[in-house]
Design a protein around this nucleic acid. Structure first.
Lengths: 160, 160
DNA sequence: CTGAACTCGGATGATTGTTGTCCGAGTTCT
DNA sequence: AGAACTCGGACAACAATCATCCGAGTTCAG
């Protein structure tokens, strides 16, 4: 199983934006995280399409969260960037081969698909229970309260 | 997020093997499920490497489960075919850029990685709680007890 | 009102992983 | 001893991801 690499970037960006009071350009976010500016822009577009961030054009423009960080879950970000398709896709093997089941008996997903999708639901539930605000609080604890003030100061306008 | 397509085949094969009393060749399993014989063989090799099935060569050879179906979880099959690498791979973004955290402060995973890996653990736990034997029982219920006898009869030697 | 600079947005190519296939080594039964 | 059947690993084709560029739109300053 593999998750799109852009998910990590998107989560870090949302976490950073939760500490910003003004729109932040994509290039600034890329500099902050040390990643490719052009490619990060692509993922930010995905966040904008999902309605998680709002883009402002022109001078002093950039990206900003559309709602409070406590109202954005990790699942929202993951679905925006990685897509909403389930990891397990049932190809209805039971309807193929010499012992094929008739379509009339396949109104509900097969037992294998049910178990796999149930596991994915557990995964989604775990992600939905954590918000961007929760992440910010955890980072505060990890860094003895030093990380977020430094981040806010840098976003405020510091060049280095 | 995307799961290897071979996982579905592997699960169906394990379910079928749980009903077999003699080794089943890969070609027979491929015919049963209506999939590519050569590619299915590749995934069966992965199951053999993981120790879930044992291969017997020569005439009347094939694959057989190494232990009771109740002792094989869906997680075992998924890890054998899809690999054990976590879906979310932290690239330590926090150590890059102008606000890079010193390595001394990174002895434990960052808050984002902790949350993502916790969600994956929930997924794995859900998969570990279901065994191949559970699947067989569910299919029995879905088909009013008709599927498994037919499967055993076909595996017994029927040509169609 | 005009101009210019800065921003995002979608369209375009390279690279890695997965999918699918083939042939050779080994083993078992005749 | 022979022959047929089995698995096992090595070899291409496809797709999706990763990465990049240039154009459209907007905002602020003059």
């Amino acid at each position: 199983m593999k998750l799109s690499g852009g998910v990590e970037w998107g989560l870090h960006c949302c976490l950073s934006l939760s500490q910003a009071r003004a729109p932040v350009p994509a290039a600034r976010l890329a500099e902050l995280h040390g990643v490719s500016p052009t490619y990060l822009a692509k993922h930010l577009q995905a966040l904008a399409r999902a309605g998680l961030v709002r883009s402002t054009q022109g001078k002093d423009g950039g990206y900003a969260l559309t709602r409070d960080a406590a109202e954005i879950s990790l699942l929202d970000v993951v679905r925006a960037i990685d897509g909403e398709a389930p990891a397990f896709r049932c190809t209805e093997i039971r309807q193929r081969g010499p012992l094929a089941a008739p379509p009339s008996a396949c109104v509900r997903p097969c037992a294998i698909a049910r178990a796999m999708l149930a596991a994915e639901d557990a995964w989604r539930t775990a992600l939905a229970d954590v918000s961007i605000a929760d992440l910010a609080q955890d980072v505060q604890g990890d860094t003895a309260g030093a990380a977020m003030p430094r981040l806010r100061a840098w976003l405020g306008g510091a060049t280095a």
